[in-house]
Design a protein around this nucleic acid. Structure first.
Lengths: 195, 195, 195, 195
DNA sequence: GATGAATGAGACTTCATTCAT
DNA sequence: CATGAATGAAGTCTCATTCAT
């Protein structure tokens, strides 16, 4: 299995660095190869083409991302606690990897529609995780039983994504992780916060 | 003033059509010129360069967009009503102009970081409108007085944007406008909805 | 009509020179552009792609070639005389244009099967000319009435082609044109020459 | 001696198959190695480089080809009978090995000038065979004593080659071998056929 | 002898922009 | 004002060959 070979991840990690530091459109294959310490041609022993690097990058990193979050929320009982942990972990993981944050929030969005559709497929794992939390919350009575799961998920994901993007564009000048409780409260209680 | 001349808007409208129908990366200047019924070189009498077309496009259209929404919410008294009207109008305006919806939600996001920063500047007018509603709601007591305006605005904008993007990607198969009340309720009451 | 523009023929003529002097696989578009005195991109205003240059080259030159021969044999009465004139003109034209001789006999044959099929289409005009002479000869009684036209044409064309190729490969050290009568006699009388 | 080792012919035979089925430009060394059931590197234990495979292929196969024909015509007394047998055997051998027919008539001609010059060297054995028949015919009085041997040989070879190529390009839809007598008659008697 | 992972040079084509008319 | 022919820079991928095992 090719993913076992060390050069596979070596090239993906190089791609993250190069894209983060040079931008999506300045991330030439030759630059990635150089950063990875391999010859240009070697890239093509592990990836079909340039697009395949980007999709694989997203698959690997998003896979780890979702796994990480799943582990973290596994210990939490309530849906609200799971949601908080999810937001915290999401913020934490991106805070810990500035390169990856730039790549996912800014650079990879410049890819063409086709690639973005494939990226969306990978994203589905994360969205389903959110859906599961929402449904648990509805069943346990923590969340309103009349919630539209799809819209709720879009609110949660859209909010988190907007905040992270804004953080990245501000050049990560503030502590993202620290925002998690307030964001959680906003999502759970809404603008009114009748408590 | 250039903007008064008929060819200025003619070219911008052509750009919307060409980008919507061909995609961002297939929207060559020559195609826009052809669609606008002018020569390639004529474009450069009205715009500094290609990027300038896109920024101007966004300025013009986003200006109209914000004006439209401002007019609509002017008659509303409460912040909650204004928010609902804003969401409804946002959804309505994009439903009425599929080309523009595709351009703003999908295609223009493929532009490079530099252009996106300029687009964000244009977007500020809209974001300030949201901020104003939130602050009004806080002052009137409709919304929690402890709201973080910035985060709240990011929640509102992030949610709306995510929903619209999802609607565009689904090829606009469902009635976007009809979602407005549920989206409004979600934002105002949160997942808990303690009412 | 693009063929009217001077640069069209200018590029084709440049291609003949570059291919003849550098060989088919060393005839890069940039070399052809330089030889033609235009920018690389200009080539693509007149030709779809590199292959299109080569097909057009063959069309234009072979068109002239067949026209030339047709004019020359028009004045001849008998089929035998026409055949002789055809061979003489064929030899003469290639003797007069060494570059073209190299291109058609050696270089263009290195092209891939697809391109060669298109070239064969262009060649058909010439083959039909030969067929016409053979049929005239059969009708007039000059040639055997039992001739298979297709095989006869293949003998005539195969023979001429083999001789010209051999002349080109020998670096055109001998007088090709002078061979015409002997070749004509061979084709007409065969190895036996019972006269 | 390398040629004695089984892998030598194994690789050559693999090359014929790969070139015939994929075309000259799609016949990568790795494909030939795979078809031969050896590693890429193994090729270079038996051949200096890729070109060496092709020349060796031609040498081996053309050697057999000429040997075959020589045996067949050995029993024939007259030059005319020898010529007929030569044509028949030539047609027969290629009819019997479609792969080889494609390789020699179409694919190997796409090789560069240098390789084609080397192939021509190999071909000389065959051309000398034809020369010998012509000279015998001249001496015995069967053929015209004024024949130019070189031109005659070019007619014979050019004709046969053109007919075989045409047969291969027509995807071998008709019986090539059956044409031999007519081709022979054409060559011997010419277009006039005064008998 | 046999393997196969790694190498790295090289070229076609697109398209934003200019400027002579 | 308007035109549109001309420009030229820049990047992905292939594949023959090598060499450490």
């Amino acid at each position: 299995m090719k993913k076992m070979k060390p050069k596979y991840m070596q090239i993906i990690d190089a791609a993250v660095v190069v894209i983060a530091e040079n931008g999506y459109h300045q991330a030439q294959v030759s630059k990635i190869a150089k950063q990875a310490g391999v010859a240009d041609g070697t890239i093509y022993l592990y990836f079909k083409n340039k697009e395949d690097i980007l999709i694989s990058l997203f698959e690997e990193k998003m896979g780890q991302f979702v796994e990480n979050i799943e582990e973290k929320i596994a210990g939490k009982k309530s849906a609200a606690e799971k949601l908080l942990m999810m937001i915290e972990t999401h913020f934490q993981l991106l805070s810990d990897d500035h390169h990856m944050a730039i790549v996912t929030q800014l650079e990879l969005r410049q890819s063409n529609k086709e690639l973005r559709l494939k990226i969306n497929d990978v994203l589905k794992g994360y969205l389903q995780l959110i859906d599961k939390i929402i449904m648990e919350g509805k069943e346990s009575g923590e969340f309103s039983s009349s919630l539209d799961v799809r819209l709720s998920r879009q609110m949660i994901f859209g909010t988190i994504d907007e905040i992270v993007t804004s953080w990245v564009m501000s050049e990560q000048k503030f502590n993202l992780r620290a925002l998690a409780p307030k964001v959680h409260s906003l999502l759970v209680n809404g603008l009114v916060n009748c408590q």
